[in-house]
């Protein structure tokens, strides 16, 4: 059994590295989104150059986060990838169905508040977490 232990230890280490890399990228992205949300009015007094710089940085960090997420998923084993795929498919379906009608609820005055993009992000995040938990339980 010892022959393959080195490469398998490498796999386990790679998984850990991918998780911490994704963690750092997500943290950086959340900070950059927060900065972009409150910065223009509270920190740099609507300075357009600063807003553009922070906006571009936010996009660049977003791309980094996407790449880190892809690397994380590719580094998972086949069952973990399947769990991720099923949860992502469910989330995509919910977002298409919910997002498609949500805007119409606003224009049809079915809801009293204005539909916002971050509402969709919240629904997406919650759906993905619930889906991951449910699908993981299915394979337990």
């Amino acid at each position: 059994m010892n022959e393959t232990q080195n490469s398998n230890a490498k796999w386990a280490a790679e998984v850990k590295r991918n998780i911490s890399r994704l963690h750092y990228w997500v943290c950086a992205w959340v900070i950059s989104i927060g900065l972009l949300a409150i910065g223009p009015k509270l920190l740099w007094n609507l300075n357009t150059t600063m807003t553009i710089v922070v906006g571009l940085a936010n996009l660049a960090i977003g791309v980094g986060m996407i790449m880190a997420n892809m690397q994380f998923v590719k580094g998972q084993d086949e069952m973990q990838q399947k769990i991720f795929l099923e949860a992502a498919a469910l989330t995509l379906g919910v977002i298409v169905v919910f997002g498609g009608s949500y805007q119409l609820w606003g224009s049809a005055a079915l809801i009293t508040f204005e539909p916002q993009v971050w509402h969709l992000l919240c629904v997406m995040g919650l759906t993905f977490m619930i889906a991951m938990s449910a699908v993981t339980r299915k394979y337990r």
Binding site: M1, T4, N8, D77, E78, M79, T136, Y139, R140
Partner: peptide, 29 residues
Amino acid sequence: NWTQAQLAAELAVSRQTINAIEREKFDPS
């Protein structure tokens, strides 16, 4: 006399994957 964790380490998969295969809830590639 191997544990699920030992077998998982040998195959470079998670212990949960070994458990799911043993319980016939997941078919391996």
